[in-house]
Design a protein around this nucleic acid. Structure first.
Lengths: 144, 144
DNA sequence: GTTCTAATGCAAATAATTTGCATTAGCTAT
DNA sequence: ATAGCTAATGCAAATTATTTGCATTAGAAC
């Protein structure tokens, strides 16, 4: 559990609790978004006795403080969470194995600005997910 | 209830039932995505006695047959549904009043192809939603 | 250590959606 | 029109994801 986690918590007026730090650490390490259930199970597996509602509440808190972001992927059971690098991310989701890759590049260019001018909206951000089949899955995609 | 609805249903081997046609018609007329609950209530209001599970089942069926598409907007309570014009759509969602505007233009250009080449994924499609504040809401956005 | 409040556990409540099974209503061929 | 077959519906109950109230506990500051 690297130490700047406790820093990041402190900085936002959050107590540095075992569960909180643990959840944040798991998200930080994960290369893809994780569900609340997954986090919960992983903690139990490692004998960290935590309650499910704590996991949800912690995730809520971390999202509020912008340490984590929550995403809702079409047709996933529930929400997923990922560590919120300041960089804005998009996702490439494999429809076969459900693997999710985070993409750094954003193809929108100055579309937001154009849209703002056209609609007079104040644009806050956007969400872009790409769906497809990964190299392994595309082989079998049109069989079953 | 325009008649090509019964056509569209027949074409896909679906029985032309009152509820089914009604739901499809409502979606066709709506200028923005609608929730299952909204559809359900609207029908009750017009004395069309329908069951909630029928609404869900009908929507499922219509989605399977690509007559309707389902969308999950970040932080909405549940899923929304819209008539599936073959045109692919994006959404501009007002964070103030939750109004949703469908956009026809897609700023992705040939990004899907580029990504396909780079990742060796078979790209199936994408989902893009833009968030912001509409002209009415942006006035009050930074007050409350 | 004491004290104060935020964080947690636990159990129960909600909300959204799904499912099993009995009944009914569309379509098809007569 | 009508009989027959199956898909569609109603109803009630089950699931799943998430939230909440309240009593208890554990960080942080002193």
């Amino acid at each position: 559990m690297s130490d700047n986690i406790s820093e990041e918590l402190k900085k936002r007026g959050l107590k540095n609790t075992k569960h909180r730090a643990e959840i944040l650490d798991m998200l930080k390490r994960s290369d893809q978004p994780v569900s609340a259930e997954q986090l919960f199970k992983d903690m139990l597996d490692r004998n960290i006795n935590v309650n499910f509602s704590t996991v949800y509440r912690t995730l809520d808190t971390l999202c509020e403080k912008d340490l984590v972001s929550k995403l809702t992927i079409e047709s996933e059971g529930g929400a997923l969470y990922e560590f919120n690098s300041t960089m804005h991310k998009h996702h490439l989701i494999c429809l076969g194995c459900r693997k999710i890759i985070s993409l750094d590049y954003c193809p929108l260019g100055n579309y937001e600005q154009t849209l703002a001018e056209k609609t007079d909206y104040l644009i806050a951000g956007h969400k872009l997910d790409i769906y497809g089949y990964c190299p392994e899955c595309r082989k079998t995609a049109h069989e079953g």
